[in-house]
Design a protein around this nucleic acid. Structure first.
Lengths: 138, 138
DNA sequence: AATATATTTGCACTAATGTTGCAAGTTATA
DNA sequence: TATAACTTGCAACATTAGTGCAAATATATT
């Protein structure tokens, strides 16, 4: 079965608090990536706005979630399914944004293909976002 | 030689104004992608903040520039070198962010490789951002 | 070239989003 | 259970973005 919030928090050496458990559950229960605003909505403002910001930042730092690039001035977050070590993310999978349901989904099994860069460019990380229609909306 | 601002604006059916010319020149003169803040800085606030927002939006709508996804809650814009039609961008090239000089560069000649998506997913567009060290900073 | 029409700009205002310090509350540790 | 360490919420502040409208500017028309 899927990991539970407690295990994840403990493994990351984080104090176990109500907020962290609830927010982590949101990620565990949602296939789609979440923005700060989504979390506020789902938790119905049970936690302070600032707490949510700090929780997300902590989770990113600990490698529990990763950020997904967007073109709309927002940051999306999603669980790191393949274990990310602290400070080093292994999120080289493709992200899919559905133009229909607007959800952003991590395609954990689709890895970003390598690209040949011009002379002198040394790649470190690669992110890929594909838009289109997802399997639910097809 | 490179296209001048006037040609581009006329071709897009836009009124030719000081602001549009200056902002377009910034893109023509800069290899790196620009954020709203960069434009404000370079123009030394000669134009109202709102004008810059609207100009950028207009340029995106007309296919003059395109947006580059980022994970830091900002939008970067860059010229569409390969002609984009209105409402339909052809910006399927790789974007490179240098961790050293912090510049974002469009690698217009490096196209995004096709990826195999899970069953039911229909791709429409793909964006790719690679981080690392650029040819200037190597 | 002067006027009429359409478009664009700047301002004022509003709203949304993100950040920081600190006291109070909560969790982990001894 | 007492202590130390950490987390939270509040308040204040800062930054970034969006809208309506009158004035200014650009294009079209005569």
């Amino acid at each position: 079965m899927t990991e539970n919030n407690l295990d994840i928090l403990k493994k990351s050496g984080l104090s176990v608090t109500e907020g962290r458990k609830k927010i982590l559950d949101l990620f565990l229960d949602n296939e789609a990536a979440l923005a700060h605003a989504d979390i506020e909505k789902y938790t119905e403002a049970a936690f302070d706005r600032v707490t949510v910001y700090r929780t997300l930042q902590t989770f990113v730092d600990k490698g529990i979630i990763h950020q997904i690039p967007t073109t709309d001035n927002s940051i999306l977050y999603a669980l790191c399914k393949h274990k990310c070590e602290e400070g080093h993310h292994h999120d080289e999978h493709v992200h899919f944004i559905c133009n229909d349901c607007e959800k952003t989904i991590c395609l954990d099994d689709v890895t970003v293909p390598p690209v040949k860069l011009p002379k002198g460019f040394k790649p470190a990380q690669a992110a890929m976002v594909v838009t289109g229609v997802c399997s639910d909306c097809k």
